[in-house]
């Protein structure tokens, strides 16, 4: 008894770890188990052997192309959100009057949710919406520009919901970089551009990679806006629509599970690539010294 206790203590195991049990059981039962259940289900199609559902997905262009459609939306949107956040967050560093108000305004779209954003975009960017009215009355265009029920509607929706997200993360990473480092660079003769490029950007890069990943995850799972402001049967038929239709329109749970698995794999591949690149970067302390 004593010996066992001594051995467990050596490995850092004691009764405090029991506190982890409910959460671990919970995640295993409601996340891991369904996930493997889904994988299992995806391997039992009515016909075509264990990989039948996957074969069907990759041979049917209508299904297969949803991958490129999704990536074609999610990658540019995530990239734009991150790249636009950097200069804006960089400008907004430090303390000044009205910063909280400005930040709150930038955060606001998070609360809109995809559905209101979709409704607003339909109203605002639609053929008779204010945006087209301004363009036409200022003489910039003759006919209304089509910005909804296609790729651009979904893209704008992803920017509106994703940008505040990216902005907040980038600003928090920026605020973690000791401003003394830039001052030190300045005393060594570095100009503003050099300070940013040689000091701030390298320290920020790992944070940017993480931000990109999180924004990408958000954009990759696009579903309601692709249906509502996009063209769900055509150019914005993203992979989650395919999964949803398989499950709830055709009641083909095998195919739906297969699509869900493919979706997870594609996402993990992208995340893996970005995080792999991130691992090559310096990821240590961003403080200027002790304390």
């Amino acid at each position: 008894m004593t010996a066992l206790r001594h051995r467990l203590a050596d490995r850092g195991i004691d009764r405090h770890l029991l506190l982890l049990l409910p959460a671990a059981v919970f995640v295993v039962v409601l996340f891991i188990y369904p996930f493997f259940y889904g994988i299992g289900l995806s391997l039992q199609p009515a016909e075509g052997g264990p990989l039948g559902a996957y074969r069907r997905f990759f041979t049917d262009a209508y299904l297969r192309d949803t991958i490129t459609t999704t990536l074609g939306l999610a990658l540019p949107a995530a990239l734009l959100n991150v790249l636009a956040s950097v200069p804006i967050a960089y400008r907004m560093r430090g303390r000044y009057r009205g910063k909280r108000v400005l930040t709150t305004l930038l955060v606001l779209p998070i609360t809109l949710g995809t559905v209101l954003t979709a409704q607003g975009l339909l109203n605002f960017l639609g053929p008779t919406g204010w945006f087209n009215r301004v363009l036409q009355s200022t003489g910039l265009t003759d006919a209304p520009v089509r910005l909804t029920n296609n790729y651009w509607g979904v893209f704008f929706s992803l920017v509106i919901t994703g940008f505040p997200f990216a902005f907040l993360l980038v600003s928090s990473y920026l605020s973690g970089i000791d401003p003394a480092l830039e001052r030190a660079a300045a005393t060594l003769g570095a100009g503003a551009v050099q300070r940013f490029r040689r000091v701030t950007l390298p320290l920020l890069a790992p944070g940017l990679a993480t931000t990109f990943c999180l924004t990408f995850v958000l954009a990759f799972s696009v579903f309601p806006s692709a249906v509502l402001v996009g063209d769900p049967a055509g150019e914005t038929r993203v992979i989650s629509i395919a999964a949803y239709e398989a499950a709830y329109v055709q009641y083909d749970y095998v195919l739906a599970s297969a699509i869900a698995v493919i979706m997870g794999v594609v996402e993990l591949v992208v995340l893996g690539l970005v995080l792999g690149w991130r691992a090559l970067l310096y990821t240590g302390s961003t403080a200027g010294g002790k304390g």
Binding site: F31, S240, A247, S257, A260
Partner: peptide, 19 residues
């Protein structure tokens, strides 16, 4: 294990979970 449910798109685990 705790990070995965946040990182995966809800649809990917939502469909098997719903099933």
């Amino acid at each position: 294990l705790f990070l995965l449910p946040i990182l995966m798109p809800p649809i990917t685990y939502g469909i098997p979970l719903a099933t």
